[in-house]
């Protein structure tokens, strides 16, 4: 994004790097929330689920802090060109990453409402799906930190895999519910978990688009973006 040259006003560089640090931390915490929520779901670990729920407050606080800092930088430094695009991206990315954290929290909350000892095929699929979505979140925030448009494009392309998993899990759960109506409550929860992970993939894609814009100044071409899940599986 920049030429590697520092600003004449060094304090400006310090402020920018602090902001980047906060965004990275938000990303790390959101990714961790997803990983731990899925872990808690798989092992029915209620303590871990509670920790994920409590940890969301830190992400919310970081978002508020990022918002405050961006407004300050805009007011005091009047950033231009790539600096301006980065500030706008930082503001939007913080909002999206906060949402990603919320989805992780929502998955953790469901652990309490579900019974122990499930071994449905869907749960295994959910773990694989969550792994891809978590990597997308991780990689797209690395792309922001490194100002790497190519990595951002790769993240967008991976959203298709998340959507494919979602469609597959949707069919699996519907079949499962039809087989035995007593599975419906449990399956409905898992359906929401799948939907949450699918949304995390979409949000990571949104972040990738913002990173691409911040780096290049151009909108990501439409064909590079991942498609939405098929209508049949839209919840």
């Amino acid at each position: 994004m920049n030429t590697g040259m520092d600003h004449t006003v060094k304090a400006f560089d310090d402020e920018l790097s602090e902001l980047r640090g906060m965004i990275s931390e938000m990303g790390g915490r959101s990714e961790q929330a997803l990983v731990q929520a899925m872990d808690a779901l798989a092992r029915h670990d209620l303590d871990l689920a509670d920790r994920v729920i409590a940890g969301d407050k830190a992400i919310d606080a970081l978002e508020a802090e990022v918002e405050k800092r961006v407004v300050q930088v805009m007011a005091l430094r009047a950033p231009m060109a790539d600096d301006l695009r980065e500030m706008v991206a930082a503001l939007k990315i913080a909002g999206v990453v906060e949402r990603i954290g919320d989805y992780g929290k929502n998955i953790a909350k469901r652990v309490h409402r579900m019974s122990e000892g499930r071994s449905s095929e869907a749960v295994a699929l959910l773990q694989s799906m969550a792994e891809i979505a978590g990597e997308m979140v991780h990689d797209v925030l690395d792309a922001f930190a490194a100002r790497d448009a190519d990595v951002a494009v790769q993240v967008c392309e991976r959203d298709q895999a998340v959507d494919d998993f979602y469609n597959s899990i949707f069919r699996t759960l519907v079949t499962f519910m039809m087989e035995n109506p007593r599975n419906i409550g449990e399956s409905a929860h898992l359906m929401f978990v799948a939907k949450n992970i699918e949304r995390i993939g979409d949000h990571a894609t949104n972040v990738a688009e913002m990173v691409y814009y911040a780096v290049t100044g151009d909108r990501l071409p439409e064909r590079e973006r991942g498609d939405s899940p098929t209508d049949a599986a839209k919840g």
Partner: peptide, 16 residues
């Protein structure tokens, strides 16, 4: 001011 094409322009307007 949002997306200059030349590096020299960008470095100048961003204070670099």
């Amino acid at each position: 001011f949002t997306n200059p094409r030349e590096t020299r322009t960008k470095d100048y307007i961003t204070g670099r």
